[in-house]
């Protein structure tokens, strides 16, 4: 996918999320994520972290302000364009996001099959390569309930990084994932940033990302009064 280099990749401009719809504090959220940036957002509440990721994806209604991704305001787009634009985002969520009726390998490539014309064998090849990279012996073919939690986390990473997304919204897979996932996860983040993708890494505690401290562009904390910049000492 071509690199986006025409301004901020993601921009929250005094965006006030609907409290009723998201539970996020109804205060203005402002931030900019440039291509290649990696931003760590500390959020103690897992639900808030997920809602913040939803806010970045244009899934949370706004009471005021705007959220722009790749220069496009989510609020200005039609359904087709909204869905297509979301196809450029890779996500790892804490919220259960595996449909039980679809085998994992299909759920992994489903997004790319839906949004792109890439041949299925190319997708499967890429997905299998990512699966090996994230510590799976191949592309899991069983339904999600048959897989161990750790392998599901690995599969979440495969799904998030498949298709070279422009934006990665990663609700920390390292916290509850296997320790050996760390290296491949950080390597994948670095590679994605190198090709111009932006990364928002939502963590619960500081310890997780310290290993990657030098690579982090900015740190924010999701508090009751909105996004608060954390000084990186």
């Amino acid at each position: 996918m071509d690199m986006y280099a025409s301004g901020p990749l993601l921009e929250l401009n005094k965006a006030i999320p609907s409290f009723d719809e998201s539970g996020l504090p109804p205060v203005p959220f402002s931030m900019k994520l440039m291509p290649g940036d990696c931003m760590v957002v500390e959020a103690r509440d897992i639900g808030h972290a997920t809602m913040f990721a939803d806010l970045c994806c244009g899934l949370v209604p706004l009471e005021d302000g705007s959220v722009r991704f790749m220069g496009l305001d989510w609020a200005d787009l039609g359904d087709r364009e909204l869905n297509a634009l979301r196809g450029r985002i890779g996500r790892v969520t804490h919220r259960a996001s595996w449909p039980e009726f679809v085998p994992v390998h299909l759920a992994i490539v489903l997004q790319q099959l839906h949004h792109t014309t890439r041949p299925i064998d190319v997708l499967v090849h890429d997905a299998a390569r990512l699966a090996e990279r994230f510590g799976l012996p191949g592309l899991p073919t069983q339904n999600p309930s048959f897989l161990p939690e750790e392998d599901l986390l690995r599969a979440s990473c495969v799904r998030a990084f498949l298709g070279r997304p422009h934006l990665l919204l990663l609700e920390d897979p390292l916290e509850s994932g296997p320790a050996e996932l760390s290296n491949s996860f950080l390597a994948a983040i670095t590679e994605a940033r190198d090709r111009g993708a932006g990364v928002i890494w939502l963590v619960r505690n500081n310890a997780v990302w310290q290993e990657y401290r030098q690579g982090v562009t900015a740190t924010w904390r999701l508090a009751d009064d909105g996004l608060v910049a954390v000084r990186m000492g």
Partner: peptide
């Protein structure tokens, strides 16, 4: 737009 994307979200419906 990536040549592999089915819908180009940058093309406005309007």
């Amino acid at each position: 737009m990536s040549s592999e994307e089915i819908i180009d979200p940058t093309v406005q419906h309007d």
